[in-house]
């Protein structure tokens, strides 16, 4: 075990898979020699594996994603990087109409074993085109799997699983967790999709969230402990498949649920999860399910505006207190 950053853990996972399977290759804008990825995730990999397998591309998101599709159905295992999650709008046809549907509309004739890596989230004052959290769009697209790792120890095992998965995976990362450190096993390990992780056990309220919000939820749980409120924190790790079992069991134990993500509220993953819980565990709920999300606006630029936009510990804590 070594304490390393989320970024380093992710790179280790990519590197191990490239060493294991020569069909695995990376493509994307500025991922290679000169830059190593906008967030430095692929730094030094071009030096190690060559520019063929760590392939810089023109600024052509739809063709980057489409090239990944074409390569995937003819024997390669591409990992395409879309530099910012917001830019995946330019590749939606290939991700959602082609990659996601090919197995289905061709009657099971082919697998589409590709990974699209991208990064969501605000907090860096990058304004409306470089800060969004769009994971619900992909959760809403049958045929895609969606990973949302929040911790260094998860990101490595999940990227390895994503690369080995026969289906297309939207592998979402978060800008503000790249530098977070955690103990990560040195040996190879895989984390199966569809298994949530209980990050903290508690008895009074279940707090479910993704990405940076899991980290905030843990801070809030610590704080509320002092007030005598025991909070259980669940990180789903993947949205598709979604581990509803762990969540439902937790809700049956606590009777209360707060959902927190950085997405704008309407149509967010939190809405879907709330609907599932009320369908499956209504009788166990002692209070209404609370959602903590960003407001329904574009992501603003100016620091005070952006800080207002992103859910903070105070809002999360208040949501918990409201239903206890």
């Amino acid at each position: 075990m070594a304490e390393i950053t989320y970024r380093e853990a992710l790179k280790q996972g990519l590197r191990e898979e490239m060493l294991r399977d020569e069909r695995v290759f990376l493509l994307g804008e500025d991922i290679g020699l000169n830059w190593g990825g906008a967030f430095k995730v692929t730094k030094d990999l071009a030096e190690e594996f060559g520019e063929d397998r760590v392939r810089d591309t023109p600024i052509s998101e739809n063709t980057i994603a489409g090239a990944a599709v074409g390569a995937a159905i003819t024997g390669m295992v591409p990992v395409a990087e879309i530099m910012f999650g917001d830019l995946i709008t330019l590749a939606m046809d290939q991700v959602c109409n082609q990659a996601a549907k090919m197995r289905y509309m061709f009657g099971g004739q082919t697998s589409v074993p590709l990974v699209i890596r991208t990064v969501f989230g605000g907090g860096k004052n990058l304004a409306s085109h470089h800060s969004q959290s769009l994971e619900s769009w992909f959760m809403h697209t049958p045929g895609l799997k969606v990973a949302v790792p929040a911790f260094a120890s998860d990101v490595k095992g999940l990227i390895k699983t994503a690369i080995r998965d026969p289906d297309p995976v939207l592998f979402a990362e978060h800008k503000l967790v790249y530098d977070r450190k955690e103990e990560v096993p040195d040996d190879e390990y895989l984390i199966p999709f569809g298994q949530a992780k209980i990050r903290r056990e508690g008895a009074d309220v279940t707090l479910w969230g993704t990405f940076l919000m899991v980290h905030k939820a843990l801070e809030v749980a610590e704080e509320l402990q002092k007030e005598g409120i025991s909070v259980e924190v669940i990180d789903p790790r993947t949205l598709v498949p979604l581990d509803t079992k762990t969540l439902i069991e937790s809700v049956k134990k606590t009777g209360r649920l707060v959902l927190v993500t950085e997405e704008t509220k309407t149509g967010a993953t939190t809405a879907e999860v709330a609907a599932i819980v009320q369908e499956e565990a209504f009788d166990w709920l002692d209070a209404p399910i609370k959602r903590v999300n960003a407001p329904d606006t574009p992501v603003p630029f100016s620091p005070p505006l952006e800080q207002y936009f992103i859910p903070d510990n105070k809002r999360i804590a208040q949501a918990v207190r409201d239903i206890v």
Binding site: N62, T63, P78
Partner: peptide, 8 residues
Amino acid sequence: PIAVGAAL
């Protein structure tokens, strides 16, 4: 784009 990927 798919043809590009297959050719690659």
